[in-house]
Design a protein around this nucleic acid. Structure first.
Lengths: 227, 227
DNA sequence: CCGCAATCGAGAGCAGTGCTCTCTCAAACC
DNA sequence: GGTTTGAGAGAGCACTGCTCTCGATTGCGG
C-alpha cells in the first residue's frame, strides 16, 4: 500500500509552500532585487540560517519561483487557447488577451521571467523547458494557417535562419513550416515586447491604460497570421 | 571674460566621470542589481562615505546612468537615420540595425533602460524626456508614409486610443496621423521586444545568433510601414 | 522496542552592503 | 588674512547572504 508522506515530509512540503508565498509577496511589493531570505525567515518565525535547509541559496529560490511562473502562465494560456467550437482566430485572440491579463495581474512574475536577467547569468537548465511550454501554448492556436501542413514542416526559408526556425519548431513540437514559425516567433516577440514596455512604464502619460492599444494590435496580429 | 571652471569644480567633474565609468564597468559584468557604491569607492581609493559627496544614493547613480544610456542611444539612432540621399526605407532599416548593434554591444545598458524595473518605482522625471528622444529617433525615418501629411495630424482612430495616439505624437513632435502613430508604436514595441527576448537568452539554443531573424523582421516592418 | 542516523532549528559569526554622522583639513572666496 | 565652503576620513547602524557548529527531534532498520 502506498504510505502517505511522513509528518516530517509533510511539514517540509508545507514550509516550502509558505516560503514561496512569502517570497512572492515580497516580490510583488519590492521587486526581485529586494527579495530577502532573512525577511522570509523572519516572517516564518525561523532563524535566518534555518531557511538554508530549504533553499541552498537566494538564487535557488528565485529559480523555483521562475519555474512556477512559467508553469502557471503556460497553464493559463493553454486553457485560453484550448481547442473547442471557437474558430482559430478567436482562440488566438483569447490567448493573447489571457497573456496580457496574466501579465497585468501579476506584473512582478511577468518581469521575473521576461524582464532583465543578470549579464553572464545562464538560465538554469530547469527553466528552459517551462519557458518553451509558454511559447508553445501561445503559438498553438495560430499554428495552423496559410501554407501550413504536416508534410510542409521542412519547407520555408533556407540557410542558417531556416535551420534555426526548423529546429525551434521541432523543439516545441509544432508542426509548422519555417515561414509559419517565423511569423509565430515574430508575433510572440511583439506581444512580449509590448507588455514589457507597458509594465516598465515606458507608456506612462501616453497609453495608460494600454488596453485599447493592445486590443488593436492583437487584431492586427491575427490579420497578419491569416486567422 | 568667462572664467573657466575652478580646479575644485574640475576635480569634481572628473570624479563624477570616473565614478560613472567604474559603475558602468560593474554593471557590464554583474548587472544592475550588483552595483555597489562601496566597490566603486574602493576602486577610486576613496573611503565609502566619500562617494556620497557625489551621489546622494545608489538610485541617484543609476538614474544618471539611465539618462546617459538614453542619450547615447538616441544619438546613435539619430545619426543612423539622418536625412540624406538614402531613401526612407534604407534610413529606417539602418536605424533598426543601429538599435540592435547598440543593444548587443552594450546589453547591460539596454537592459538597464528596457529591462525590468522595480514595482512601485516610478521613473524619475529626469528620465522621461531622454526616453522620448529615443522613440522619436527611431520613428522619424518612418514618419512619412502612407496617409501621412502635416494636415492629417488629427485624423486616424478616434476614441480613447485615438486621443492617446494623438497626444503621444504631439509629445514627440512627430507630424503623423493617428493611424501612422499606431503603426510606429507597434513597430517600436516589436523591435524592443525582440531584443529583450534575445538579450535575456530566451532564444538560447534556437536563434543564437539572431542576426538573420532580426534582419528578416526588420525588412518586414519596412513592408508593413509601406517604406 | 531501541539505538543510530538523518534532519531540523538555534545561535554565533564573517564579509559585505547602503547610508548617516561627526570631525578635520585644505581650498576658495571676500 | 580670516572665514566660509567643500572634500575626505572614520566610526557606526541596520541590514544582507551564507557558513559552521551544536543540541534536539524524528524516523527507520535491526
Amino acid at each position: 500500500m502506498p504510505t502517505g508522506p511522513t509528518p516530517r515530509q509533510q511539514a517540509r512540503a508545507d514550509n516550502i509552500v509558505r516560503i514561496k508565498e512569502l517570497a512572492l509577496a515580497q516580490l510583488a511589493e519590492s521587486g526581485a532585487a529586494a527579495l530577502s531570505l532573512r525577511a522570509v525567515a523572519r516572517e516564518l518565525n525561523l532563524v535566518s540560517s534555518a531557511i538554508y535547509r530549504y533553499y541552498a541559496s537566494r538564487d535557488d529560490l528565485l529559480t523555483d519561483l521562475i519555474v512556477d511562473a512559467y508553469a502557471d502562465l503556460a497553464e493559463v494560456l493553454e486553457a485560453a487557447g484550448a481547442p473547442d467550437r471557437r474558430g482559430a482566430r478567436r482562440r488566438w485572440i483569447d490567448t493573447c488577451l489571457a497573456l496580457r491579463a496574466w501579465a497585468t495581474a501579476e506584473p512582478h512574475r511577468f518581469t521575473l521571467i521576461y524582464g532583465s536577467t543578470i549579464p553572464g547569468y545562464a538560465a538554469p537548465e530547469a527553466t528552459i523547458a517551462p519557458a518553451g511550454r509558454v511559447v508553445r501554448a501561445l503559438c498553438l492556436p495560430a499554428a495552423a494557417g496559410p501554407s501550413a501542413g504536416p508534410s510542409a514542416a521542412r519547407r520555408g526559408p533556407g540557410g542558417e535562419l531556416g535551420g534555426q526556425l526548423g529546429a525551434a519548431a521541432e523543439a516545441l513540437g509544432l508542426e509548422v513550416d519555417r515561414t509559419r514559425m517565423l511569423d509565430l516567433t515574430a508575433a510572440f516577440a511583439r506581444l512580449v515586447g509590448l507588455l514589457t514596455l507597458e509594465l516598465n512604464g515606458q507608456f506612462t502619460g501616453g497609453f495608460e491604460p494600454a488596453d485599447a492599444l493592445y486590443g488593436v494590435l492583437v487584431e492586427r496580429e491575427a490579420d497578419v497570421l491569416g486567422l
